[in-house]
């Protein structure tokens, strides 16, 4: 149990915690938009930390064992970039589709978009 392991454990537990939080938020929030808040932000943040843990793991193997493990590190990094780019865009697409298909935000105090579409 050296400091690599400790850092990995910390990152993994943060990642697991926020992914679990996403599921709880998804079940507790009242409508599509607030659920998107939970579903997008928390899973993205959780996945960043899971990927960081795997990157640390790969870097340690890369340094102490062989160059072959560089693939593990770099491919995990590419997967992380893909998730970071695609997640918010997907959330935006779903939010727009939900609003255009007529789902109203629950308990909303203001809805500017409806005013614009109503014109």
């Amino acid at each position: 149990m050296d400091w690599w392991d400790v850092a990995m454990m910390v990152f993994l537990s943060i990642g697991a915690f926020f992914n679990a939080l996403a599921a709880v938020g998804l079940l507790r929030f009242p409508d599509v938009y607030t659920r998107l808040h939970a579903g997008t932000k928390c899973t993205t943040f959780g996945t960043i930390f899971v990927c960081l843990a795997v990157i640390l793991f790969g870097v340690r193997l890369w340094i102490y064992e062989s160059d072959a493990y560089s693939i593990l590190t770099i491919h995990t990094f590419i997967a992380l970039v893909c998730v970071l780019l695609t997640n918010p865009t997907g959330a935006h697409a779903i939010a727009r589709a939900a609003h255009r298909s007529g789902v109203k935000p629950a308990r909303a105090v203001i809805d500017e978009l409806e005013k614009k579409e109503g014109k």
Binding site: A22, A23, L26, V32, R35, L36, G39, T40, T43, T44, T47, V83, N87, G90, A91, I94
Partner: peptide, 8 residues
Amino acid sequence: VGLDTLNT
């Protein structure tokens, strides 16, 4: 939304 979250 559920599906998108599940994917991640």
